[in-house]
Structure formats: C-alpha cells, structure tokens
Design a binder for these strands. Structure first.
Lengths: 191, 191
DNA sequence: TTCATTATGTACTAGTAAGTACAGAACGCA
DNA sequence: TGCGTTCTGTACTTACTAGTACATAATGAA
C-alpha cells in the first residue's frame, strides 16, 4: 500500500537510549541520534514525535526492562532476604564503573532540572512506585522470616533509597568491593 | 586607580547558585544569570571566566557551605550516633519537597552526563571524600559506643550512600515522615 | 503500468546561546 | 583638570539545534 519503514523502531530506541544515557537529555542532539542510528530526522519525528516524546519512549522502555528483571529476580523461590540481595547485587556493574559511569538513566533524568517536568516525573514516579511495590510485596510475603517489629513498608523504601544512592554515586566509579560491603551492611537490617 | 567593580562577586555566585540549582547547568543560560543578577555578560566573563568556570566556582562554594555545616554538626559533644542523626535530619527539608524539589546541587551535577568531566568530577570527588572522612573520623572516635564487629569505614560509606539516595529521590517530593523513617531505620545499624 | 500512499533525504528556517569587540563610564593619581 | 586603567553595557558574531518543506523513492493495489 505504501513505502515500508526502512528501520526497526525498537533498534532506534535502543540506540537512542545509549546516546541519552551517555550524555544526558539536554546535551544529546537529534543529529547525534541520527548519526548513531542512520535514521534521518524527519523519520525520527514521524516515528516518535519530538525530542521529548522520543526520550519518554526511551525511558519507558528502560523502565520496563528493569521492572521485568526485578520481577523475575524477586519471584525466585528463595528467602526474600536472598532474593533482594541478588537484586541489589545485580546492579553492581552499573554502580562501580565496571559498565561505565552512567549510573541509572532514570535517576540521571530525575535529577536533571531541565526536563519537561509533567510527563517525565509521572513516568519516573510510576516506575519507582512499581519497583517499591515489588519489594514491599516480597517483604510482606516473607515477613515471618524477620524479627518482631520488622516493618516491610519502611524497609522497602529504605532499600529504594540505598538503590538510588548507589546508582547516584556510580558516577565516581567506586570500587565494587565497597559497593558490595554497603549492600551487605544494609541487608543486615533484614537479618 | 581604576573603575571599581559595581557588584559583589559573592552575591553573584549566590544568585548563580540558585539559578543553576533550579534548572541545571545545561538548561541555564548566561542570559538568565545576567537577568537574575543584573550583571552583564562581559563582567561575568571578566570576573569568573566562562560558563564552566563559573559553575565550578558556584559548586565549590556550595560544597564549602555543606562541609562547614557538617563539621559543626558532627563536632557536637553528643554521642556519634546522635550527631550523625542530626546531620542527616538536617537534610530533610531538601529531601522532602519542603524546600522545592531541587535535591542536592552536587548530586544533580554528578548525574548530569554533559558536564566538563575532568574538573567537575575532581571537585565532586574531593567533596565526597572530605564528607566521608568527617563521618568516618567521628565513627572511629566513638567506636566504643557500638557493638563488636562494628566497621566505621563501611558504615561511613553506607551513610554516604543513604544520604545520596535521599537527595536523589528528593525530586519526587516524598513525605518528610517517610524520609525520617528511613533515617531512623538506617541509624539502627549503629545501635 | 499507473496511481495513491507513506517513507526518506536534502536542505532549509528560526531561534537561542556562548562568547567578544568596542565605545564609553567611573575611578585614583598627578 | 587631564590621564591611565579597569569596569560596564550595547550590540554583534558564530555556532549549533529543534523542527519542517519539499521533492523523490518505494511499496501494494487496480
């Protein structure tokens, strides 16, 4: 019926993610995405809308990836304590300079004062809420494991804070041993 | 001997700090700083150098302010545990949307992939190192307070991580009660 | 083969921001 | 008062970037 698209939108979102993650939203120009993806601007605009909309699509895709992985990790048939430790441990490469110093695209975006606040904050809020829900649900389900007075809701939030802190400090490329030591110490809150 | 400066550089750095903190480095134009301060661009360039240099001066000044306050708070003649709790508690207004949603200028800058990396990272690294040293020194000095096997070095780093996490999540304007609950739970690591 | 439709690539517009040239103003000193 | 020096404000240049107009290419259907 008409000329078909010459690129896979998902591939382009993947490339755009890398560029945005590396340089941040503001500092990334569409020309750079064009150069990296080989897709010209009019095609990008036709497929994704303007720069803000493209970034939101990239970010949502990023969120979905992490949430999917969190669901799988936290659903494992091991004690909650162990599942959560594995989940946190999985971030170590991103917290320690092993996979660059980019930290977390979502946190980097949240701390960027320049982004279109309304939509972006909604996306990040939704992501954080869902992540915290996963942690909370797991802690509640296994609450019998823990000592009396254990509060799964506060603990879920504390883990979110530690997670955010580790990824915010990732930009300093800390040694992975230190990251691991922090995770161990925080996990002792659950023992 | 010559025409005197018509503005106080420190006032301008203070104003520039507010603008940079509000909008981020990239999204802040020198025209905005000119508008906010009443100082024209050539004077800014003469006094501070280019935009990067201006930002570094603003950031160093910000760091010094927080370090000074941390020194005072942590030097108080109370148990280390209590001094650190007070230090963390002092950030609550900046962690909870009470004083806007700007979080911490240093963390916001660290997560911004677009900044001149060499100089900026050195400044932030130095700041974090000095802050962590203050915490570590205080914990070491009072280590007798804590249980056996207590590791002041790891604990100092964990507190840095929590601090960074709270300020990274500040952009979601969490309820100050939740922030306080997290601080309480983390402080229980020291009990 | 021809047409309607949708994608593509080139080349453009418009706007903005960093940085500066230059003329003139404000000072201390002689 | 006149001079050298340093600061100030206007107006500019240069460069980059978001977004788009338009001609053309590639498809399926008739």
């Amino acid at each position: 019926m008409a000329r078909p698209r010459s690129f896979d939108p998902d591939d382009v979102l993947e490339i755009a993610r890398q560029v945005f993650w590396q340089k941040g939203f503001q500092a990334t120009s569409l020309d750079e995405i064009t150069a990296a993806s080989g897709v010209a601007k009019p095609s990008l605009y036709a497929a994704f809308g303007d720069k803000n909309a493209l970034f939101l699509k990239v970010l949502d895709r990023y969120h979905d990836g992490i949430l999917g992985w969190a669901e799988r990790t936290l659903a494992q048939p091991v004690p909650a304590c162990e599942a959560i430790r594995q989940w946190l441990t999985g971030f170590i490469p991103y917290c320690s300079g092993e996979k660059g110093q980019r930290g977390c695209l979502s946190i980097n975006s949240a701390t960027d004062g320049s982004l279109d606040q309304a939509e972006l904050r909604k996306s990040i809020e939704r992501y954080n809420r869902r992540l915290e829900e996963l942690l909370r649900a797991r802690l509640r389900a296994d609450r019998a494991e823990f000592r009396k007075g254990f509060d799964p809701d506060v603990t879920a939030h504390t883990i979110m804070v530690v997670h955010a802190g580790l990824l915010a400090l990732a930009h300093q490329r800390p040694d992975s041993k230190r990251v691991k030591a922090v995770i161990d110490q925080v996990m002792s809150l659950l023992a």
